[in-house]
Design a protein around this nucleic acid. Structure first.
Lengths: 186, 186
DNA sequence: CATAATGAGGAATGCGGAATCCGGATTCCG
DNA sequence: CGGAATCCGGATTCCGCATTCCTCATTATG
């Protein structure tokens, strides 16, 4: 726990870390999380050894990327929630989710799983649902959605949305419309 | 192309094939399609070699099981469609799907994928959607669903339903209610 | 500039699991 | 019964990756 006169971390090291993260983000977005480590390294213009120094494990890399992206999503959602017309908030929120997910294969994998009840990536779900809760409250106050609507409903809708997008099961915008329709009162 | 006096296939061989199929069905239902071949063999009380003689490939085994189950599902759906009150048909259909999927982990994996636009397992999707089309027509005639509702909608709803169930993202019955609500006219 | 510390690279290794092989056991048929 | 024809079992091979390790290159520091 002493401070043994540590050197500044090399600049090239830092640069490489960024390169790896960026390459991973791009590859994951393009083809999901099943890409190989060597491929990430190649895309980053870096040796496998280097990649592994930065992220000691495949899982560590995935987590790093996912965390980053998730933070972006939550932030954007919150922004939407604050700025928007309350009656439209929920709709905008879901459309935004769709937009993001359809541009990021990896993310739709993560989100689909994350909305499940198992522990990992919990904070992301919590954060998203916190935003959703606010939107629901406001919408409910205006009578835009039924009294019985909960964040659990939104949770399921998002999970389904991710699946529809990931499997290209159809027009996700229409899916969102249907889901929103189902939340309306009466 | 001759008929070189073929023997009757051995009875034990046939018995073993059934055992394997049954064991695979049970394991797949329990824990999805990621179970190992050796595990299937063990559960079937059969050597790995035997398993591979019956199903030369992991994929072949999965396909055999899935095909079987899918046929069951389609048949049940058609029965429902024929027998039921037209206004309730679609609801019953989706509830039935939910019931089946929540009892069969493997099936929910297959169905989620199958509702996607990629080719394989096409016949199943076709068959399911054919039933759905009938149900939609009747419902539409009674004004139970909007004019704009299509089988594509049902396709996405089923895909989402499978995802919700597979990931335990919430109460799937509620999901079905919301989806149905979204299909109602106006 | 010298040199100690840190990082880079990528061949080599380890590992999980599908698929193969073949000596021995079983079953069919005359 | 006898002896093919078939089938069984599971050790073994093969393969695709992730991960490790060691040598060499690059950078920070005085």
């Amino acid at each position: 726990m002493s401070t043994p006169r540590t050197r500044k971390t090399r600049t090239d090291a830092e640069r490489n870390r960024d390169r790896v993260l960026e390459a991973a983000r791009a590859l994951f977005a393009e083809s999901g999380y099943e890409v190989q480590m060597s491929e990430v390294a190649r895309a980053a213009g870096v040796g496998i050894g280097t990649l592994y120094r930065k992220f000691p494990t495949r899982e560590a890399l995935i987590e790093a990327v996912a965390e980053h992206r998730a933070a972006d999503i939550v932030a954007a959602a919150r922004r939407l929630a604050d700025a928007d017309d309350p009656a439209q908030g929920l709709a905008r929120f879901l459309h935004h989710m769709g937009e993001v997910l359809s541009d990021d294969r990896g993310m739709s994998e993560v989100v689909e799983k994350a909305m499940g009840s198992s522990e990992p990536r919990e904070e992301t779900r919590e954060a998203l649902l916190a935003v959703a809760a606010e939107l629901i409250d406001r919408a409910r106050a205006r009578g835009a959605v039924g009294q019985e609507v909960t964040t659990g409903d939104v949770n399921m809708i998002i999970c389904g949305l991710a699946a529809v997008i990931r499997n290209e099961a159809g027009d996700w915008r229409r899916y969102v419309e249907v889901a929103l329709g189902g939340l309306r009162p009466l």
